[in-house]
Design a protein around this nucleic acid. Structure first.
Lengths: 215, 215, 215, 215
DNA sequence: CATGAATGAGGATTCATTCAT
DNA sequence: AATGAATGAATCCTCATTCAT
């Protein structure tokens, strides 16, 4: 009897270990994918490259993912989930809408500096091409939309509080801020992702609020 | 004697016709390439797709271009040349620096509405991916830099005239405006390139100058 | 009436001229083909190359020949016909069998020096590959066999006259001489077809008759 | 500890097996290439043909070689290496120069009977065509030259020993013997490579030494 | 389950041949 | 009949995916 119990426990432990091992492998692959896709883009990044970066054999990738597309999608999804978590936390902590916008910017930039050129992939691959939209699951976009929604809500709140112009709609404001922000990211990626991105959040914020006109 | 002259003239005419036909084909291929690359991106756009879009056989493409890469590069270069011409004209016509900035925006948007999603390709393909930089000739970037230079000069002029803030450098201002502008383009492409882009130039210009703060 | 006659004559003349023109074109193409195939080999020689060498457009080749294969075959056949004519003349003029063999060698080498690397093509392309045998008409080989037959007959005659060993069959002797001769041609082609081939005929003849042993 | 050792040993064995399998595949491909190139020539032999002959898929060829050219070059090089080894051994064993020449012939013919039409390829493809010279590495020719050098040395030795004529240079003698020999090979390949080649070595040797004249 | 080689569908490119002018 | 551009079948090669070990 005791024997059986012991065996069961042993099995359970073994399964736990296995699951943890699997999770570790999966994560290693996703990290390798992020690096490789970020460096080379979707098409130039070969499965062999990702496998080499992860330190496994090419065949191993298929024990964890069904296809290259799935690896790509999973990687994006995970990155977005992390991003949304961070943004969500900021959103709940900061009551002042304008300060919240600044915090959004700083958080985004911190995420980018940490995660490297990952978001750039999204801009490039996920942004425009049709094939990309066909491949990516709906869910991915949902997360992105969640971010957009948070931003728009914040702007609506700020307009209500009389802090921002009423003649531009919250979606337009959101798009404008995103554009200002993307321009920074774009130029940052071009410069090779140095460690000065976060510092530029206040500049973007200032221009967004006050414009370029001399006062 | 008259016969020889006649023959010569006939041949000259025939050659002229041929040259025109060749030019027309070449242009048709470049147009098809712009559409196809714009829709699918470089890798997903197959030579067969471009040929089909142009209404020719796949082999025909190689009577006009050496490779897929060359088609891509030529397409971008041609588009940029057209763009720079338009911008240059504006630059010379408009003496007031701020009005010139607005004209730049309007001209850019007119170009985009006319040329479709072509500029989007540049943003995506030319902007970030390493392979793209390897493939494109130096000359291509030269044109883009020319545009940036015009913009920065204009901003420097405006700052000197006391029209814009002095605490942000012309390159930063240029990047900011480009970001605001790109955000519009981005969203416009996503919406399927409807005919409302030019109208949004004044909105972008307004936000850029005055910011989002309520006055 | 007279008019009709005149027209007829005019037409006949025109037709003659046309035929001559056609023949000239055909010959120009064959000459160009010999040069080009000789320089590049069958596969590396493109129809465009041959056309360029002949000074006509690619399409023109097809007004005179059905295919690349046919050009190749015609060129070989014509060369062989010329060659056999020369050999046949020698064969009839020279009564002494050994002197006739020497004359064969000298004639062959004269043909090669004149016609360039054409025969080398035959050695290379026509000699061994299956596809070549499939492509070439039977008739081509017939000509080659005619030459072999002349050689073998001469050897038989010489053996009968007590001039050559009886323990080696005429076909074997013919093959041996051909081998010695080919070695010269081979080395001559490698050296770039200089004008010293004919002079080596007597060396080949001497070795063939007397062997390499010191006497 | 024991476990780790065991695993290591297992891995080493597996790697050994793998290496052997790889070597076997590589060799199978080279053999198939020799057959296919020998039958069809370089251009007519398609990668699909070689793959079919080797019993693998077309793509597999590229796991062992970078290109068709590399397969061709490797095949030639390997054959030449084998050949040179055999010739070198003979060269060192046989002190009498004339007997050594005979042994060279016999060894060459044994090699050809074993290796099939491979040498014929060399004669045809390596001998004359320009593209071939461009493709093949220098090293390949080096081996061939080594053979020629051995032959010429032997002839020089024989001349010094008063065994051969002094009025023909060793290179010329070498070329002559090669010619006689090639003629045999040529005719042997045409007859479909039957098993009678070695026996003809003495005939070639006899003619080479004594010539065709009746004594 | 890791491995890494085999697979073969897919794609860029070539070039003999056709055809409208 | 000459022209030269259009054609598309054919070919080499790539690489995501499968599978035997």
């Amino acid at each position: 009897m005791a024997d059986t119990v012991k065996k069961k426990r042993t099995r359970r432990i073994r399964e736990t270990v296995r699951e943890e091992t699997r999770a570790a492998y999966r994560q290693a692959i996703l990290d390798a994918a992020a690096k490789t896709f970020g460096r080379l883009g979707f098409h130039e990044a070969k499965m062999a490259d990702i496998a080499a970066e992860a330190g496994v054999a090419a065949g191993t990738l298929y024990n964890y993912f069904d296809s290259k597309d799935e690896i790509f999608a999973s990687m994006l999804q995970q990155a977005q989930e992390r991003f949304i978590e961070m943004i969500q936390a900021v959103s709940e902590d900061e009551p002042d809408p304008l300060q919240r916008v600044l915090a959004f910017l700083q958080t985004s930039y911190a995420f980018l500096e940490e995660g490297g050129p990952l978001f750039a992939i999204y801009l490039r691959q996920g942004g425009l091409a049709e094939w990309s939209r066909q491949r990516l699951q709906e869910s991915d976009d949902r997360l992105f939309k969640h971010y957009t929604a948070l931003l728009e809500e914040t702007f609506a709140e700020a307009i209500d509080a009389g802090l921002l112009r009423e003649d531009v709609s919250p979606p337009d404001l959101a798009a404008m801020l995103a554009g200002l922000s993307d321009a920074q990211v774009f130029s940052w990626v071009r410069r090779g992702c140095p460690a000065d991105l976060i510092a530029r959040a206040s500049l973007v914020f200032d221009i967004f609020l006050n414009g370029a006109t001399k006062r």
